[in-house]
């Protein structure tokens, strides 16, 4: 009997649990960064050689030479996917950076100016949230005439609301915190307080907010590009590749859609894991768990 219970006990220990939570969080961050770095480096190393039309290797299923197969022009899908992801990444980076800065400024304005400015901003955020994301994206992309500008503007203008709320709440809370009040009584100037008390709190929030905006920005960029309002076919982002693959669906060339989408999912998930784990690390409530 004793031997049975001894045998059963170690089964619950999964190898991952050997490390504590903090090490695991750091490990996940390192892993996500590594995945993204490998993707970006591969895109640079492979270059654009695979994009040439080669009619002798059209519509090849995945193989060692072409891990993602080839398309109807004989182009290497692996190269196309990586290049497409690079484009999506760049667009997503610009859009989410703009969006995060907008969120920061709006959140700060709402919290510090107060009064009617705060009311107006809160109301504007509610207005944005009253509309389905996709409809807002289509509307703003249309207003900016589509293309790269349309994508960047629509993604940037629809993603700031969450961060603005977080920043506003954080500043409002900090303003009434005892140590900030005390600091003011000690005669420190507003700028001094902002730099020494507010900034250290807001900066991590901002960075994490920016990182967590990223996956959404990329997904929505791919979404509106897929339906044709975003990037044009001359900028073969992942959304373009996937919408082209629709025309070849019924022929059974599954790799045209499945593998680039999977790569997109891996990229988005990596950014998501990076943001979430960084948040866990920076949040004092979960950092040492």
């Amino acid at each position: 009997m004793a031997s049975v219970s001894l045998k059963r006990a170690p089964k619950r220990v999964v190898t991952f649990d050997v490390f504590n939570r903090r090490v695991r969080t750091l490990g996940m961050i390192a892993f996500s960064v590594a995945v993204l770095a490998v993707m970006m480096l591969l895109a640079q190393v492979l270059g654009v050689d695979g994009l040439q039309t080669r009619l002798d290797v059209r519509n090849q299923p995945p193989s060692w030479a072409n891990p993602f197969g080839t398309d109807w022009l004989g182009r290497d899908m692996f190269t196309r996917t990586l290049q497409g992801l690079t484009i999506s990444l760049r667009v997503g980076l610009i859009a989410s950076a703009l969006s995060a800065v907008l969120g920061l400024l709006v959140g700060l304005a709402a919290a510090t100016l107060g009064g009617w400015v705060d009311a107006a901003i809160t109301w504007l955020i509610d207005l944005f949230m009253s509309l389905p994301h996709m409809v807002a994206l289509i509307l703003i992309a249309f207003v900016f005439g589509g293309g790269v500008n349309g994508v960047i503007a629509s993604v940037a203008l629809t993603h700031w609301t969450g961060l603005a709320r977080v920043i506003r709440a954080e500043v409002l809370q900090l303003k009434t915190a005892d140590y900030v009040q005390l600091s003011a009584r000690f005669g420190h100037s507003k700028m001094w307080i902002a730099r020494h008390h507010l900034l250290p709190h807001l900066f991590p929030q901002f960075v994490v907010g920016l990182l967590l905006l990223f996956p959404h920005a990329i997904l929505h960029e791919a979404g509106i590009t897929f339906i044709g309002i975003g990037l044009s076919p001359h900028q073969p982002a992942v959304g373009v590749i996937l919408s082209e693959s629709m025309r070849h669906l019924s022929t059974g060339y599954w790799w045209l859609a499945v593998l680039p989408g999977l790569a997109l999912l891996v990229m988005v998930k990596s950014f998501d894991a990076l943001g979430e784990n960084l948040r866990a690390l920076l949040d004092p409530r979960t950092a040492q768990e």
Partner: peptide, 23 residues
């Protein structure tokens, strides 16, 4: 659930289409 949160809607639709309609 966490993976689904990062999955592009249109890609999932394409995936289902390939498996259930084409294959």
């Amino acid at each position: 659930a966490y993976v689904l949160a990062s999955t592009p809607t249109f890609w999932l639709a394409l995936l289902l289409l390939i498996v259930f309609s084409v294959e």
